[in-house]
Every structure is written in structure tokens, then in C-alpha cells.
Amino acid sequence: MVQPISKQAIYVVFLRELKRYWRAKARVISSVAQSIFFLAIFGLGLGSFVGDIGDVNYLSYMAPGVIGMGLLFGSVFSGVSVIFDRQFGFMKEMMVAPVSRTSIILGKILGGAATATIQGIILLVVAAIMGAFTPSIALVTGAFAAIGAMLLITSGFVGLGVAIGSTLNDFHAFQLLSTFVMWPLFMLSGVFFPIDGAPLALQAAMLADPMFYGVELLRWCLLGSGTAILGPFGWLISLTVVIGFNALMIGLGTYLFSRAQI
């Protein structure tokens, strides 16, 4: 069935996501604080022990990864919140309106991407204040590029969240989701250690993690370099994978959502 897209509908759903995000201050604060702990404790503590990685210090190495963590958790959670919309009935209100499911879910994805990106920007500023990045003109343009990358990364992961949320039907799966999806995606994304020195099997797993390319892309934007494994055009490879993943997940999320029972 062809589903017409209504800009108005996308906009309202988007607006609702922003409003809800803005009001869930506890959630925002706790996830920002979590990232700060990671940066401060691991970045400074482990950093003094590990020393430099490549030609950057450990805090700088970790910062894009920790930003990526905020993006990942924020965006998947936004997508999965379709479960809550269903559980608390609000989904019916949207479904019975004369707008297509595609419009609803596009609004949801845009809203989720926007809120997760806001989160990412906050973390970017925090990391900068902690001295993770060398101030320069390149950093300013790099930061703008990073924000673009964040939008790409997060909309893909909101899509993944929606796909999962449309397939699973209850709260209980939530724990499973966190243990078996979120944490592996996060741990394998090369936040804490560089891929170069890892055992081969682990390297393969990391290369299969879409978030790995997201973090790589952020590193290129903010630090101006990336891992040796992907070579000098690592940023292009990462960008391509991120865009591909993004398209795939938005498509999958939209498809599964429009098929789901209310």
C-alpha cells in the first residue's frame, strides 16, 4: 500500500519527542553525568597508565567514543519507546488519525535523532572543557562536521530501536535488549581500546559493529585522524557504512512499524 507522507504529521510527532525529552530532565542529567564519569575516571585514570594512543592522549582518544555512547543509548532508547507508546495507549491516538504510519515513524525517527544529537552536543562541549580536543580552526569546522555525523548515526540507530520495538511487545525484553544489543554495540565500537592491537576474532567483531564506524567518523571529525586499519580514507569508508546503515535501519524500522499490530 502506498503511504502518503504528511509534513504536518511528521512535524507534530517530532515536536512531541522534543517536548518529552526536554521534560525528562532526570534522564538527560543522568546520561550526561554518566558520560562525564567515563571521561573523568577512565580518561584521566586509565589514561595516566596507558599513555598516548597513536599520536593523541587517552582522554582525547576516548572522548569521541564516549560521545558515541551517549548517541547510541539515547537513540536506541528513543526508537524502542514505541513500546511505551503502545503500552500506554498513545499509539492508538496516532494510528486512528488520518495520517500514514510512515509519517508517524519518520517524525519519531527525526525527533529521536534530534534529541540524541542534542545530547551528543552537550557531551562534545563537556569533553572540550575537559581538554580532550586541541583548540584550532580545524576543530570548529570539525565540530560542525561531527554534528552532521551525529544526525546520521542517531537516525540509523533510532531506526534500529523502532525495528526492535515493533517486533518485541513487552517491557521484559528490555533487559535482553540492553545486555545483548546495546552493550555489545557499545563495547565493540572501539571506545576504550584501539582495534589495531586486538586479537583477530575481536577485530572481526569490531568491524561488524556499525557503531565502530560511527565512532571512527567522529574521531576523524574531532581529532583529524582515525585507526590505521581503515587506512587514510578511513573517514570515507566510515561515512559510507554509516549512511548505508542509516538507510537500511530507517527502511527496516518503517517497514516493521507499519506491519505491527497496535
Binding site: S6, Q8, F88, G89, F90, K92, A97, P98, V99
Partner: peptide
């Protein structure tokens, strides 16, 4: 159609007015 469901379908994190506004926008 308008449909008042048997089970609650409000967004409790929004105000009453915002719930209505959301609905009005959805219906163009």
C-alpha cells in the same frame, strides 16, 4: 471519525492543552 477509546490513550507527560493541540495538528 472520532474515537474515544475504552482504555486511556493520553500522553500524561504533556498538558491537557498540548494533548488537544497534538490532536488538532494531526488532523490538519
Amino acid at each position: 471519525i472520532g474515537y474515544v477509546f475504552q482504555d486511556p490513550t493520553l500522553d500524561i507527560e504533556l498538558t491537557g492543552r498540548e494533548n488537544l493541540d497534538f490532536h488538532g495538528r494531526l488532523y490538519g
